[in-house]
Design a protein around this nucleic acid. Structure first.
Lengths: 244, 244
DNA sequence: CAAATTCTTTGATCCAGATCAACCTGATGC
DNA sequence: GCATCAGGTTGATCTGGATCAAAGAATTTG
């Protein structure tokens, strides 16, 4: 889990920091792909990609939240990744994916055809390098999540989730206050991300609220009242394991 | 989780397939690093790297098993990766790691200094590409494990673990029979990998044995008697989600 | 605005797996 | 050979979260 958002620069043509595609949008690599860019939108709940689909497009999330998830034979599912604005779908050399991608909220994607994108990657070493960096970030995040799923209590899972979400969110434009943030996911979706049930998620949220660690007015708007207490509840040690 | 072992070729100089460093050892990229290569061995239980350590070396596992693990403040730990022979430690651009690496059995590593290795990566596009591929394989494996940790029952976890282990192992030289294999990990280590306790691991192993799915003579030697039943017990659907 | 629908909360009960506690078994050393 | 010790098994009990159930909000629809 990374604290710092990458120092990505806003692409001149695009209402989004292309965190994944390009950490230095000012270098204009992506301009080579201008004209091949299309926006697609998906309604909350809609599938974006199914497991096994051919990846015709790669895409940046412009707005909204999407989720990567895996399902067992009998229907139990587990989210294995969250895609927030600036996150990227698609990797060089991978024409298929092994998970479903679903719109968690209404989502806008900025899509590029796979072919020219791969050519760009091949021709531009530092873009390739940047994509490697991002894959490794995802790997780190996945491993943090493995620790959470394997060993944390329900309370610790919720606290970790809130902390992660605030960190990924609170520099964004839509941040309404210091540690206030919008929670665009339902209890059920959060449960799927944390390996819990929705009832347990609800109970733990309310217990953190009762203890004055967080508070929420509107059901979608949270404030972290006591950041230190929240961190304490995560079970992580002091620095939270951040590398960069 | 990948079924197929990569078609890596044995390096002329090295008693190991350099699965990670080089899928085409016959192209001799690694020969550029000859002379910088050192072997290091670690006794079972010994730490290899601590979280936060600077990575002076990158390394291939030649023999034995090592584990990546993460620890909570109060000592609970979770393995977040297994390193079997031919697996690789160290990524281009990452000078530090965010987990501990420990020898699970006695381990031999083939180490290269980080600096010349990174230069090799920079100068050799298809090695860089290969490393990206491997990072993505690890990411896939991590996500499979997230599903396991978050949603599978103890029985399903054990069955999945055995299946994974057989698949990663049974083409190796040391494989004694068709589906017979050596289990170099203790119940405790397996528990740490699966997010269980050692007692539960023991009970589930014995219950699978009682049902005739597996059998074991020596405590370290297992045979999968009924592969179909084993797969059935994993909770995964038919093809197990393999991409390549 | 009422009705329908989708989320959320809250309570009661249950159970898979953790925890606690012996005891067993095989390997290593002296 | 016996002692020690690290791992493994097996049983009894406990408990965190799941499951089942029902009753509130909020939001959407007509």
């Amino acid at each position: 889990m990374q604290i710092a958002l990458t120092a990505a620069v806003r692409c001149a043509e695009c209402p989004i920091r292309h965190r994944a595609v390009c950490a230095r949008c000012d270098d204009d690599e992506l301009s080579q792909l201008e004209g091949m860019k299309t926006y697609k939108t998906f309604k909350a709940g809609q599938p974006i990609l199914w497991r096994g689909d051919d990846l015709v497009f790669v895409a940046s999330v412009v707005q909204g939240v999407a989720a990567l998830s895996k399902t067992l034979e009998d229907g139990r599912t587990q989210m294995v990744g969250l895609l927030l604005p600036s996150d990227f779908i698609g990797r060089p050399g991978r024409g298929q994916i092994d998970f479903d991608v679903t719109a968690t909220t209404d989502v806008t994607l900025c899509c590029f055809e796979r072919k020219p994108f791969e050519k760009l990657v091949d021709d531009t070493p530092h873009v390739a390098q940047r994509l490697m960096e991002l894959a490794l970030d995802e790997l780190d995040a996945a491993r943090d999540w493995m620790l959470l799923l394997g060993r944390k209590t329900a309370r610790e899972k919720i606290a970790t989730f809130i902390q992660m979400f605030v960190r990924r969110t609170h520099t964004d434009e839509q941040a309404a206050g210091p540690d206030q943030f919008n929670m665009p996911m339902t209890r059920d979706q959060i449960a799927n991300y944390l390996g819990l049930t929705l009832e347990t998620v609800s109970r733990q949220f309310n217990s953190l609220k009762k203890e004055g660690v967080i508070s929420f007015g509107d059901r979608k708007t949270f404030t972290v009242v006591d950041m230190a207490a929240l961190h304490n509840a995560t079970g992580d040690d002091a620095d939270g394991g951040m590398i960069d």
